[in-house]
Amino acid sequence: MTSDTSARPAAPVQGADSTEPAPSGLGLVHELDRSLRIGYGGTELTRYVYRPWDVQLESPRPYFHPLRTLGGDLVSLYRPHDHVWHKGIAWSLPNVGPANFWGGPTYLRDRGYQQLDNDGATVHRAFDRVSADGGAVEIAHRLDWVTQQGETWFTETRSVRATVQPDQGAWTLVFDTEFTNRTGAAIRIGSPTTEGRENAGYGGLFWRGPRSFSNGTVYTPDAVGRDELMGVRAPWMAYAGRHDDHDRSSTLVFVDEPANLGHPVKWFVRTNVFACVCPAPFFDEEVPAEPGVPLRFRYAVVIADGDRGRDGSGTLAETGRSQLAEAAAVRS
C-alpha cells in the first residue's frame, strides 16, 4: 500500500473528523493515524504524512504530498522511479555521520555511491498541538531519528504552520525544526559534496517537482536561470514550472530564515534532469552536531498559481518572511 494521492481529485476537508472545518477557511482532517490533510475552500492543499508506509531502504520520514496551489494544480511528485526516496517536500539528510536519513545509497569519498545498511528513519512520537482556526493550521510534532540498527541518535521538535493569502493567489507553509544529538559524541552532518562529489550538496528541506516542471525557470533576487544557479547563495529561491493538460504555470518560493546557520544559504537546484530545490545548509561544509546542543532551521515555502517572474517572486518572498515572523510570534 502506498500513499500516492496525486491522481485523486481535490476533495473537501469537511467531515466528522475535521478540526474546525470551514468552507471559506483552512480546515484539517486527521486520516487513519497516518496523515493530516490540510484544505481550503474545498480544495486539498497538502497532506502531511507523518507515519509513512516506506521500506527501510527509503529512510521513512514525514513528508508533504500532494502539494497543490489554491487553483488545485499539483506541484509535487511522490516516489519517482529514478529516486524512489524523493517524496514531495521532506526534511532529508544524506550524510549524518555514518548514517543516511535520506534514503538509498550513501556517497563515500573515493568510493562513490554505496548501498549500505545505514538507512535510518525519522519516527513519529507525538503531537503536542494540532489545530485549525480557519486562519491558520498549526502542528507541533515530536520525532526521533533512529538508525537502521535501532539506535536513537537525535530527538526533534518541529512545527508546521499553513496560512492562505487569497489576495495573492498563494498559500504559505512554514517549517521549523530543532533537533538535538542524544549520543555521547559529536556527529558531523554533510552532503555528497563534503565527501568529494562536486555540486551534489543536497540535504535539508528538499522539494521534488512534477515531471512537467523539468526545464522550468529559477529566480533569485539577482538572477534568472536554470542549472547554472546550483550552489548560489541567496536569501530566497523560486521555481516556476508549467503543467501538463492545461496552459497554466505555478511558482514555489523558498525562503531562508535570516537566523539560520550560514544565511544566506547555498541552494541545491536542478531543472534539466528533473525539478528540485533545496536550501542546503550543509552543501559544502560539514556542521558538527554536538551532544545536547540543538540545531534549528526555519523556512517558508510560498506556493502560488502562475509564473510570477523575478519581481513577483520577490513579492512572494516578502510574504514568506512575514509568515516566518508571524509563526515565531505565535510559537513564543
Rank of each mutant, 00 (worst) to 15 (best):
residue 173 L to T: 08
residue 260 N to H: 04
residue 246 H to T: 13
residue 159 S to A: 11
residue 39 G to F: 00
residue 114 Q to Y: 00
residue 35 S to P: 04
residue 260 N to W: 01
residue 78 Y to G: 13
residue 235 P to K: 11
residue 183 T to K: 14
residue 95 N to Y: 02
residue 65 H to N: 12
residue 117 D to R: 13
residue 237 M to G: 05
residue 141 H to G: 09
residue 53 W to N: 12
residue 2 T to L: 05
residue 51 R to D: 01
residue 289 A to K: 10
residue 97 G to V: 07
residue 190 G to W: 06
residue 232 V to Y: 02
residue 239 Y to T: 14
residue 225 G to P: 07
residue 215 N to I: 02
residue 87 K to A: 08
residue 282 F to G: 04
residue 326 E to K: 10
residue 9 P to A: 12
residue 44 E to M: 07
residue 295 L to F: 00
residue 322 S to C: 01
residue 88 G to T: 10
residue 123 V to Y: 01
residue 41 G to W: 02
residue 300 A to C: 03
residue 8 R to T: 10
residue 147 T to E: 02
residue 326 E to R: 14
residue 299 Y to P: 05
residue 125 R to C: 05
residue 263 H to V: 04
residue 176 D to L: 04
residue 26 L to R: 15
residue 89 I to Q: 10
residue 150 G to A: 07
residue 166 P to L: 06
residue 135 G to Y: 01
residue 300 A to E: 00
residue 57 L to E: 07
residue 316 L to V: 06
residue 11 A to S: 13
residue 165 Q to I: 02
residue 147 T to K: 09
residue 209 G to H: 08
residue 16 A to K: 12
residue 5 T to P: 01
residue 265 V to S: 10
residue 243 H to C: 09
residue 91 W to Q: 14
residue 115 Q to N: 10
residue 58 E to D: 04
residue 28 L to Y: 03
residue 117 D to T: 13
residue 186 A to N: 09
residue 309 G to E: 01
residue 249 S to V: 05
residue 22 A to T: 14
residue 296 R to P: 00
residue 316 L to I: 06
residue 284 D to A: 02
residue 279 P to E: 01
residue 240 A to I: 08
residue 14 Q to I: 05
residue 267 W to V: 08
residue 105 P to A: 15
residue 7 A to W: 03
residue 41 G to N: 07
residue 33 D to K: 15
residue 294 P to F: 00
residue 291 P to C: 03
residue 53 W to A: 13
residue 218 V to K: 12
residue 227 D to G: 07
residue 160 V to D: 02
residue 145 W to C: 09
residue 16 A to F: 01
residue 70 L to S: 06
residue 105 P to V: 08
residue 87 K to E: 02
residue 53 W to D: 11
residue 263 H to Q: 05
residue 88 G to P: 10
residue 179 F to T: 15
residue 273 V to M: 00
residue 218 V to I: 15
residue 46 T to Q: 08
residue 182 R to W: 00
residue 265 V to G: 02
residue 281 P to W: 00
residue 85 W to T: 12
residue 226 R to N: 06
residue 135 G to N: 13
residue 327 A to P: 02
residue 95 N to F: 01
residue 29 V to Q: 14
residue 167 D to C: 01
residue 208 R to A: 03
residue 289 A to S: 11
residue 258 P to R: 08
residue 74 L to K: 15
residue 233 R to A: 09
residue 148 Q to L: 07
residue 299 Y to W: 07
residue 331 R to S: 05
residue 150 G to D: 04
residue 330 V to M: 04
residue 31 E to A: 07
residue 180 T to Q: 08
residue 111 R to D: 05
residue 163 T to Q: 05
residue 129 R to S: 08
residue 113 Y to C: 09
residue 20 E to G: 14
residue 245 D to E: 03
residue 218 V to T: 11
